[in-house]
Design a binder for these strands. Structure first.
Lengths: 319, 319
DNA sequence: TTCATAAATGTAAGTGCTTACATAAATTTT
DNA sequence: AAAATTTATGTAAGCACTTACATTTATGAA
């Protein structure tokens, strides 16, 4: 049941299982070394093996080949030097470089260890064959997959999808008034001076938007209001998009996108033929979002004309 | 080329590659948490996930389910308690047990994290699917394989085979005299008082064994003498096996076995019909080795009769 | 009951990595 | 050539584990 639980947890658990596997392997190697009365630690293995193969390498070269930090390599190197298994010299052409080679003692030790290493290799090969496993290939495949798209990107995409799927878009009700004010005030204050005409609209959504034939959509997430968008009624055929806001710590997950989709759907259903909006070049992400939905710059007069002093951009889309 | 080198190193490198993979994953998860402004560390994941699922668990139960030491679980528990994400109570029936549950704050956090976890799960699933990988099954297979026979046993077997394959059995030459004496003296002194008749045979192998028609075989490993066995000529048809010695730090790898094989082959080739030996019940491993080769106890007189004061066992085999 | 043993938890210290920072030598840019 | 940048190495401290050991409580056998 343990196993089953761990499986549920996905790759994190996979890694911990593999880590445990390696730990067993490492410990068992240590046991074999000590049975042979050989003074050697498993973690020296890759380092010494590499040095044996390559003859002479600098610290950084080793760390790179072993996919470790230079600090880790340095620590092993120091331990090996203390055990007199390797020797240091300086590169004549580059005095920074610490060149490492196996000492005579080190070479002798390697000879003694050869059968252990070979034995471990055979043991692992045998195990994999017996299990009919292609572990190596599997890992290869995964690494290749990650070259196409990083784990981070994959997680981001999927997390965004999860979050967006939990976001609900609902119609405005008076109970949301405070959240509507808060969310919009927050970004307004962040980017601009909040001016009287902003306040009038913002603090009286029922009177200034709904009662004048406009609409407000509310985005909720985990039962909290986390986004808003409003469509003012300019005329029977024209709406104006405004008061688009998403809670700061949830920005960048696609919630704005979802709000826009709903807003445009609503506008179409309502019979609008055109949707306009006013924004500012400073709100780069917002402008990009609008463009993605097909908005383009226009110069028609706006209901909120006085906002133009913010060096606004006016945009519109034909529905 | 890095990759190729690491591949050569087998499963140890596999593990380090997977570890790196996990590290990336962990870091990326941490990044997503921080983007969401959630105060949560990746290493809390399994712990909290488990607690969410099971509701209430004791520390030891958690550590067992997560395949960790109780100390590790304890440390995470303390961190989580400090962050007020879990709460401790005592088991009424067993006052030792520290029962842990998610606090209200913890439960809220889990709600927030759910999409991240789900997203990670989907990301990993997607990656595996895309790569056409069955990593999970592969690991399963390997774990099953290890239930049949542990890594340690596998390594031991293979290391033994490697060592034995490097051991050479050669005929005695006077140059090996000192090694012959040394190796035998060492175990004789370890188990018994070394008596005059031992010394006579041991210190004069040329005169006392070879020149009297007997034979000595020498086992070498990495150009060092590490084992001996002698066959005294009792008569034309009968030989007596003696002076079987293997260097202490190489015992248990099957070198004695290889020496015995060679000795029996030699005896047959020489025309002996029977091989006898004297040993002691104290040398349990040796007795077992002899039995494995078909020796059984006998009571015929021995060339080394006076050894019988060691409460010896006499054994023989018909060739 | 009592005494030995086992189980649950906790603490301290060690291990094998890491990150962060520092220094010196080499290389590139200006 | 001087200044800025990069590279190679080193040191200190942190992290997430581990092992070793200690303490308290429960359990089982005599």
């Amino acid at each position: 049941m343990n196993r089953n639980y761990i499986q549920e947890l996905g790759i994190i658990a996979i890694a911990s299982r593999l880590k445990q596997l390696t730990e067993v392997l490492t410990k068992d190697m240590a046991k074999v070394y000590s049975e042979l009365h050989v003074d050697f630690e498993p973690r020296w293995f890759t380092f010494v093996h590499l040095l044996k193969k390559e003859g002479k390498l600098s610290l950084t070269e080793i760390s790179r080949k072993l996919n470790q930090t230079h600090v880790a390599a340095n620590q092993v190197a120091n331990a090996l030097e203390k055990a007199k298994l390797i020797e240091t010299s300086r590169d004549r052409n580059d005095n920074r470089k610490r060149l490492l080679t196996l000492s005579t003692k080190g070479q002798q030790l390697v000879e003694e260890l050869e059968p252990v290493w070979k034995g471990v290799e055979n043991a692992v090969d045998g195990l994999l064959k017996e299990a009919g496993s292609n572990l190596f290939e599997e890992i290869e495949k995964i690494e290749t997959g990650l070259l196409q798209k990083s784990i981070y990107e994959r997680i981001r995409e999927n997390v965004n999808a999860e979050i967006v799927s939990r976001v609900k878009i609902i119609s405005y009700k008076p109970v949301y008034k405070h959240a509507f004010i808060d969310l919009n005030l927050r970004w307004l204050e962040k980017y601009f001076e909040v001016e009287p005409h902003d306040k009038k609209l913002l603090f009286n959504p029922d009177e200034e938007i709904i009662e004048k034939g406009g609409d407000i959509l509310i985005a909720t997430y985990l039962d909290e209001v986390i986004g808003t968008v409003a469509i003012l009624k300019v005329s029977k055929r024209v709406g104006e998009l405004t008061k688009m806001a998403v809670q700061e710590n949830l920005q960048g997950h696609g919630i704005g996108h979802k709000l826009m989709e709903s807003a445009i759907l609503l506008a179409r259903n309502k019979g609008y033929k055109k949707l306009t909006l006013l924004t500012s070049p400073r709100l780069e992400k917002a402008v990009n979002l609008y463009k993605n939905f097909g908005f383009s710059e226009s110069h028609e007069p706006s209901l909120l004309l006085n906002n133009l002093d913010r060096s606004s951009i006016q945009m519109e889309i034909i529905l």
